[in-house]
């Protein structure tokens, strides 16, 4: 019954159209590889297009675009240092507020949360990342800013006497660096907490049990055994949050006040690089102005690229250590 003709493979070859499937395999592989190649192509195309658009301004003005602070469109001066300053300060404020909260939530969710709370709280925090930036901006204008101006700013400046420091001095404008920082903190929080939670969960049980067996309290276990193990991953998460904050456009544009000034006070309005581009793009009439905005974009691109690359590298190094 098993008397196959000697050339059974050869017969099958025609019947199964195996040459056709070998060809389809090649086509399939080429197609998926082409899709994969789109990603690096996109990165290169983005970089090229931004630098092409920015080139006239860089050629004419050089680095004065970020080192000087005189932005005078009609006079042909384009110094965006205040925007760079605003980007850095608003993101720093955001991280100062968001980091402890995000890590707190991550520890809560990975260590202490009663199991019935874990899912809903995790979902709500994740949902923060799903809210469109323009909705944050809208809420910022009509809810957050009045709240800050009427209650929080006077409290910080007068009740806590922080007005004596340069950081909280001067009149309390509503739209301000502080408002931008708070909005950015809310927006960066889900990113930091998601990554932190992931790396905390990746800490091996043995690590925790060893600490508890030595008589550590639950907090000491977190502080001495869990956090050191997850540290570089958490830093990676913070940097991802930083990347978000640096490049965030709409919400910040709506609450920061859009004034090109360097002021130490968080209560005064400011500007960020992203909001400068977004605001002036539609009004830019002459080519140099447009190109200067693109140059600001190019610098923002480089900064966020570096921050993201470092962040990914840190998160990956934790993942790799876990895999070993």
């Amino acid at each position: 019954m098993t008397s196959l003709p000697v050339d059974w493979l050869e017969k099958d070859r025609r019947k199964l159209r195996v040459d056709a499937s070998a060809f389809s395999d090649k086509v399939y592989e080429a197609l998926t590889a082409a899709c994969a190649l789109v990603v690096p192509a996109l990165v290169i195309a983005i970089a090229l297009s931004i630098f092409a658009a920015a080139w006239p301004a860089f050629a004419k003005l050089g680095l004065s675009i970020i080192t000087t602070s005189n932005w005078d469109v009609s006079g042909g001066h384009f110094g965006a240092a205040p925007a760079l300053f605003g980007t850095l300060v608003s993101s720093t404020v955001a991280l100062i507020i968001a980091t402890p909260l995000a890590i707190g939530v991550a520890i809560f969710l990975s260590e202490f949360s009663p199991s019935w709370l874990r899912q809903p709280v995790g979902f709500l925090v994740d949902l923060l990342a799903a809210i469109p930036s323009v909705v944050y901006g809208l809420w910022g204008i009509f809810v957050l800013i009045p709240l800050l101006r009427q209650h929080v700013m006077p409290f910080l400046r007068d009740t806590l006497h922080l007005g004596a420091t340069p950081f909280f001095s001067g009149p309390a404008y509503g739209p301000s660096m502080l408002a931008a920082g708070v909005i950015l903190a809310i927006m960066a929080l889900p990113y930091i907490s998601a990554v932190s939670r992931e790396v905390l969960m990746a800490v091996p049980r043995s690590q925790r049990e060893a600490a508890l067996a030595l008589g550590a309290t639950r907090w000491e276990m977190i502080r001495d055994a869990v956090i050191p193990y997850a540290r570089s991953g958490i830093i990676g998460g913070i940097m991802l949050g930083l990347g978000r904050a640096l490049g965030e456009t709409m919400a910040v544009t709506m609450v920061i006040g859009n004034r090109l000034e360097i002021s130490a006070s968080l209560l005064s309005p400011g500007y960020t690089m992203a909001s400068l581009i977004a605001n002036e793009f539609s009004e830019a009439t002459n080519d140099l102005h447009l190109s200067a905005l693109m140059a600001v974009g190019a610098i923002l691109f480089i900064i966020t690229l570096i921050v993201n690359a470092v962040a990914r590298w840190l998160v990956w190094s934790v993942a790799r250590r876990r895999a070993q």
Partner: peptide, 26 residues
């Protein structure tokens, strides 16, 4: 190629959306 694409995807995911706007405009 896979490692490169993986890394660049993550980096792209972190880029400000305004950058994508400038790219498409250009």
């Amino acid at each position: 190629l896979a490692s490169t694409v993986r890394f660049l995807s993550d980096v792209l995911n972190g880029l400000p959306s305004i950058v994508m706007g400038i790219f498409a405009w250009e």
